[in-house]
């Protein structure tokens, strides 16, 4: 069993090859038909060198990264991201995360029947950074309810 995360812990990184297929599949799966996400000619006409990833796909990848590293059973509560440089085809996105804090989940205490068998779920706030060859593609903060299967954690400060 993975040890319980605690503030300051660095999550193992996730490397995502930015293929044309990923950019297009992500745009269509998120119902985002802006041409700059699937039509290279249109993207160039608007000043970009190529198609680039849409924000919803970046959001989805950040969510996946966190639940991959803290799940299964981890449930996303908040995802807040800011984009920097674009993700163009052929690049590689490296996602890294650091646990900012751990605290008790008060809001969902009444919701335990659906979300878990244990009212004492803990929330982790994770700082996420995603970089590619151009620099920082995404910075963000994710709040995630940790799986109940985690061993007890030490008290949050």
């Amino acid at each position: 069993m993975t040890p319980a995360p605690s503030p300051g812990d660095v999550l193992p990184s996730l490397t995502v090859p930015i293929t044309r297929t990923l950019i297009v599949a992500g745009a269509i799966a998120s119902r985002d038909y802006q041409d700059v996400h699937h039509d290279a000619e249109a993207a160039r006409a608007k000043g970009a060198p190529d198609i680039f990833m849409n924000i919803l796909t970046t959001n989805g990848l950040v969510g996946r990264y966190i639940t991959d590293r803290l799940g299964p059973g981890a449930v996303l509560r908040k995802v807040a991201i800011r984009l920097g440089v674009p993700n163009y085809p052929g690049d590689t996105l490296l996602l890294t995360g650091t646990i900012n804090s751990i605290c008790a989940d008060e809001r969902h205490a009444e919701d335990v029947d659906r979300l878990s068998e244990d009212a004492l779920r803990l929330l982790a706030e994770v700082a996420v950074v995603g970089t590619n060859s151009l620099g920082r593609h995404v910075t963000g903060t994710v709040v995630v309810a940790l799986p109940t299967a985690q061993p007890p954690l030490r008290e949050s400060p």
Binding site: V16, L22, A25, G26, I28, A29, S30, T57, G60, L61, G63, R64, T67, D68, G71, P72
Partner: peptide
């Protein structure tokens, strides 16, 4: 479709 695109196997 979303999970396939994102590679999300949760």
């Amino acid at each position: 479709h979303w999970c396939e695109a994102m590679g999300d196997t949760d």
